[in-house]
Design a protein around this nucleic acid. Structure first.
Lengths: 251, 251
DNA sequence: TTGCCACTTTGATCTGGGTCAAAGATTAAA
DNA sequence: TTTAATCTTTGACCCAGATCAAAGTGGCAA
């Protein structure tokens, strides 16, 4: 029995990478069952950079997860003020089971591929497969902690600390994807414009630009081009975030 | 069968009010089963105003829900800057299944009674009772949306809009408890000091004081004492929050 | 009823980051 | 290779909200 389903896990996993939800310690058999059921209702879609994946108020026909690329989750006020409330990287979940209308915008920052599941059948599976809902719960609790940690950044940190926090989070998540720890010399692309960073941090794009260049001048980071960052001094960057220790930050 | 368990629902519900988790549309039978199981592992504890319920880093022996009173969920930086990341009112969940160490402080703002469940047995029930984990999922997704909505307040609203947002949220949640809609003339106590409000809004207590008195001077609200608020003009208050419409705000 | 303590208000001043403006850089299209 | 469009940097100035300081308020314990 185990033998016959084992290949299925691999095929599904290699197929869509991390979909439908971040992999956890679950017995292989149950995971295979879940994935096999999900397999039937999934499809893929790719979005161009800058394309809107979901508009606030849209009917939500699907949920899914990011396979590749970076997307932003954000809110906009009528006067144009915008706040990003989440940065969606590969393995992150998109959409909300149980909700018919979107309450946030989702926009592709780079080219983005999403593994999608029709919402209604997905919700039925959620009831049928306890492991699936268990993992969804675990994920949403992690995201909730991450959102709450971000509130400290938005509410109490100054501009320099905000930039340092953003860089350390992107660096850490980038490292996770490639299974590398965060060390001096780590390099990565920021896949966001200065404006998108500002929208995430509750700043203006001018302030973001000034603070990034200040961190560069102070030798904490170095830049190659506008978007490619090298972290020269990890410990220093962590200090600059204003957080106590090496960063128990979630996400 | 239904008949024999029905009284149990009532007894449990009247016993601890809303525990263990916000009531939803679930078939009465399943709910009764869940509650009967939970009944066995629950206990109550009451905390004095100002008392710490959980310190960041504590071993989490229990999870539970607020029965009465108001508590705050917050984070503190070493230099003393503090950010409240959640306001816990009756029916709100406390703690995180699957996590052994607390990552936020929980403090009683008023006298608080909590209906507690030992964490380990609760986690086992979570696996055993699909309805329970389903409802937990629904709750945590709601809280996640609420946290994200609050990010807009922290990141993009000015002091006056922040105060208006806080008042409208407290008023709305207060109304929910008493099943009253939010109308002109609605009254309630703010069960937070100016400092706690400041910590929720990412402001200083002086700014909170000034802005509350500004809203009073402008006839949006009136005060009896320092903490009792009457909303004179609901529509106006909603305008002052800066949000587009009547407020799809969660929480 | 007095005194204390915690909370709140109010005033004066300062400053971090916003705003406005203009000039680079980079990429892509024509 | 010029033109255009988008993104980024830099400078000058300003203001909302922080900071510092002091006085006002109310509840309650002795």
């Amino acid at each position: 029995m185990y033998q016959t389903v084992k290949p299925k896990i691999d095929s599904v996993q290699s197929d869509c990478g991390v979909c439908p939800i971040k992999r956890r310690a679950v017995c292989a058999y149950c995971e295979a069952q879940d994935l096999a059921e999900l397999e039937k209702i999934k499809s893929y879609k790719t979005y161009a950079p800058g394309e809107m994946i979901i508009w606030t108020g849209d009917d939500m026909r699907f949920v899914g997860s990011i396979v590749s690329g970076v997307a932003s989750l954000s809110q906009t006020m009528e006067d144009g003020r915008r706040q990003m409330v989440g940065l969606l990287l590969p393995s992150d979940f998109v959409g909300r089971p149980g909700r018919a209308k979107a309450v946030f915008d989702v926009e592709a920052a780079t080219e983005v591929t999403i593994c999608r599941f029709d919402r209604k059948p997905f919700e039925k599976l959620l009831v049928k497969l306890p492991h699936l809902s268990g993992r969804m719960l675990e994920m949403s609790l992690d995201e909730l902690d991450a959102a709450r940690e971000w509130m400290l950044v938005l509410g109490r940190k100054n501009a320099r600390e905000k930039i340092a926090s953003l860089l350390s989070i992107i660096a850490r998540r980038e490292g996770e994807l490639h299974k590398k720890p965060l060390l001096d010399g780590a390099e990565f692309d920021i896949k966001l414009t200065r404006e998108a960073m500002a929208d995430y941090l509750g700043l203006t794009l001018e302030t973001v630009s000034r603070q990034i260049n200040a961190l560069k001048k102070d030798g904490v980071i170095s830049l190659q081009g506008k978007r490619h960052v090298k972290i020269c001094d990890c410990a220093r960057l962590m200090m600059e975030t204003g957080d106590d220790d090496d960063g128990g930050m979630v996400i």
